[in-house]
């Protein structure tokens, strides 16, 4: 599998990662090599095999729909990069 520079730009955008022009070729080489390694799994036939999403035969546990977490907004906002009046600040989104 060979990824080209356009593929790299598309993936980087989906992943919300800024990639400098000089890094693109290196990513194309490295990711293509990893996908070549991954392609080895195509050697085995898996028709009819149930996909394994979880290592144990477990079902999702449910709990009663009542609040279990105390309000810790002030504590959590204390470690945020930028807040004001209890709000997280981001660059202007709507003109």
């Amino acid at each position: 599998m060979h990824l080209d520079l356009d593929d790299i730009d598309k993936i980087a955008h989906l992943a919300r990662l800024a990639i400098s022009p000089e890094q693109r070729a290196r990513y194309a080489t490295d990711l293509s090599a990893i996908l070549d390694l991954v392609a080895q799994m195509n050697a085995v036939e898996t028709t009819g095999v149930e996909p394994m999403a979880h290592p144990l035969q477990m079902t999702q546990r449910l709990r009663p729909d009542i609040p279990s977490e105390p309000d810790q907004r002030a504590r959590f906002q204390a470690i945020a990069p930028l807040t004001e009046s209890g709000l997280y600040l981001v660059p202007k989104v709507i003109d």
Binding site: V38, M41, N42, T46, V49, E50, P51, M52, A53
Partner: peptide, 8 residues
């Protein structure tokens, strides 16, 4: 595909 091989 990877999840199926994981099962194997």
């Amino acid at each position: 595909k990877a999840q199926r091989v994981r099962q194997l």
